Computed example of a mutant assay.
Amino acid sequence: MTGTWPLWPSVLALLASAAVVVFAGSRLARTADELADRTGLGEAVAGAVFLGAVTSLSGIVTTATGALDGDAAFALANPIGGIALQTVWLAVADLAYRRANLEHAAASLENLLQAVILVALLSLPVIAFATPQLQIGWVHPVTFAIPLLYLYGLRLVRRTHEAPMWRPTRTEETREDEGGPVRTQSLTRLWVTFGLLAVVVAGIGWVIAKAGIGVISATGWSSGVTGFTLTTVITSLPELVVLIAAIRMGALTLGVANIIGGNVFDVLTLSVADAFYPEGSIYGPAGPVTLVLLGGTLLMTAVLTAGLLLRERRGVGFEGAAIPIVYAVTIALAVFAV
């Protein structure tokens, strides 16, 4: 590839990017928590819309940059890997929150509905992989279907928040979505702070993409596996930092919604990848490795959905143990398929 960065500058850029997103992520959690209270949206909706979108910005820029550089496997593997790794972050957070199982304590019908929507959204790229010859212009029709289904899903989540037809059983371990203390910072200043942090997260995505492609070029590693693991670790750090910060603040629903809502938003990045890929539909040249990664991510999402539904009270639960195992097996299968 032309214009790629050398190995060591790429590695240093990835490390510097990690430091920046850790700082931005901790500030994002506090700002979004207050916005959830001040706007009346609630933690689940705010976590999905505010945090889910903003913490995904670095991944979007990374994916768009990889697609423009013509690396189809990298461009698709990065958002799919983000969804997978961010699901693993919930298992990590289960270890950090020792009072109860996190999926039990953060009981939310909105989060459960979003997990179901995520499964539906991830099924669309499977269809695209099977029909790469279908194109509207230079993109696959699924590229248009994904954002439409996403917007309809948001409408369902908002309706569920305003008039729920089902409610999770409240137990002594359940943490309610309660408003935090009144702050003196103006709502305008909150939005400005949130916007500036969003710009920082988005800008760092370009650095991560160029550094990741530099590592691929210098080492000869698989684009798909690198996008699923190395660069995804950096682009997914905001979600982990926000999740841990939200747990420490007691905003459990916000933290879990940040992960699931971010995962739902990340599926939109697949449309970005296809739109920015200059050689037609991206699904054909992406190869079978990406399909393996997608299948593993779908399985992880299904396990998480079951965990949200069954709500084991103590420990990490079956989902906390199964999700990292599925993630590791998925990577091993992808390496084997290269």
Rank of each mutant, 00 (worst) to 15 (best):
I208H: 00
G214H: 02
T55Q: 00
I282Y: 04
G320E: 04
W221V: 13
S58L: 06
V267G: 11
R158L: 12
L76F: 04
V45I: 15
S217W: 13
T63I: 05
A202Q: 07
G320N: 02
A32E: 06
R38V: 08
A115L: 14
E162I: 10
R98A: 13
R30D: 14
M1E: 12
P125N: 06
N111R: 05
G42H: 03
T31G: 05
A67T: 06
G47N: 08
A115V: 04
L148F: 10
L68N: 06
Y277A: 02
S17V: 08
D177F: 00
E110T: 14
V292I: 13
P324Y: 09
R158F: 15
A73W: 05
G59W: 12
A16R: 00
L304Q: 11
G320M: 01
A46P: 01
T253C: 01
D71R: 15
T2G: 13
A202Y: 01
Q86S: 13
N101I: 03
W166R: 14
S123V: 14
F318Y: 12
D94C: 05
I83N: 07
V61C: 03
Q135A: 14
P9N: 10
R98N: 07
A16K: 03
P181C: 01
A36T: 04
G307F: 02
R314A: 07
A24M: 04
R248H: 10
H104N: 01
A163Q: 11
E34K: 12
A130W: 08
A251N: 11
A251M: 05
A91R: 01
T330M: 06
E319D: 14
L291I: 04
R183T: 12
I136C: 05
E279M: 12
E110K: 04
I323G: 00
G205N: 02
L298H: 03
P181I: 05
L112I: 09
L310Q: 07
Y327L: 08
I259V: 15
I323L: 04
G179C: 08
T62S: 14
A19I: 03
G66K: 01
T226V: 11
E279P: 02
A218C: 07
L118K: 01
R30L: 08
A96S: 09
V142H: 12
L76I: 02
T174V: 07
G70Y: 06
H161S: 09
D274F: 04
L156V: 07
T193K: 06
T226D: 09
G52E: 11
L95N: 08
F194K: 00
F336K: 11
L154T: 05
T290I: 10
W206A: 14
L57M: 14
T184Y: 13
L102G: 01
G284T: 04
T63R: 05
A198S: 13
R99T: 07
T305C: 09
G284N: 06
T219G: 08
I244K: 12
L51I: 15
G25F: 12
F265L: 13
G261A: 07
F144Y: 13
P6Y: 10
R99C: 04
A322C: 12
V61H: 03
A334Q: 00
I331R: 02
L156H: 06
G280L: 05
T169A: 10
Y152I: 08
A36G: 05
A36Y: 03
A93T: 06
